[in-house]
Amino acid sequence: KLETFPLDVLVNTAAEDLPRGVDPSRKENHLSDEDFKAVFGMTRSAFANLPLWKQQNLKKEKGLF
């Protein structure tokens, strides 16, 4: 399991300012399950079932792209 970080560490943070080991294209993977659901309004599995373009739009909207 990946290390999780608080939302404010990941949202609207440039790649070079992210904690070590965080993939800038997969910031959402480093949210706790609770934060993930609070941000996206759905579970990880529901998010994973969305088309890629919709996932990317949601990530942009939430500052996690």
Rank of each mutant, 00 (worst) to 15 (best):
A48K: 12
F40E: 00
P24S: 07
L50N: 00
D33F: 04
T4K: 09
F5W: 12
D17T: 08
T43F: 06
N49H: 12
D23T: 05
T13G: 11
P19W: 01
R44E: 01
G63N: 07
F36V: 00
L50K: 01
G41R: 08
S45R: 12
K54R: 12
V39W: 04
F40P: 00
F65L: 15
N57Q: 14
R44I: 03
K59H: 01
L18I: 05
E3W: 06
A46H: 10
L2Q: 13
V11R: 13
E16Y: 03
V9N: 05
K62G: 04
R20I: 15
D33L: 06
K27H: 03
V11E: 05
A14G: 08
W53N: 08
E61L: 11
K1V: 13
P6T: 07
K27N: 03
N29R: 12
L31V: 02
K62S: 07
A14Y: 07
K1Y: 12
L7V: 09
L52N: 09
D8V: 10
A38F: 13
V11C: 08
K60N: 07
L10A: 02
S25D: 14
W53A: 10
L64H: 03
L7K: 05
W53H: 09
N29D: 15
N49M: 14
T13M: 13
P51M: 02
T43C: 08
V9W: 12
Q55P: 00
S45Q: 13
N57D: 14
E28V: 04
G63K: 06
L52K: 11
E28W: 02
Q55S: 02
Q55V: 01
M42P: 00
L18D: 04
S25E: 14
S25V: 09
D23S: 05
L2D: 09
R44T: 02
F65A: 15
R44H: 05
R20F: 15
A48W: 10
K59Y: 06
Q55F: 00
F5K: 03
V11A: 11
N49C: 15
V9P: 02
K1S: 12
P51R: 02
D35S: 05
W53L: 10
L7T: 04
N57F: 12
K60E: 11
R26M: 09
K59N: 01
P24C: 07
V22Q: 03
D35C: 07
G63C: 08
K54V: 13
D17I: 06
T13A: 11
V22C: 05
S32M: 04
N12F: 06
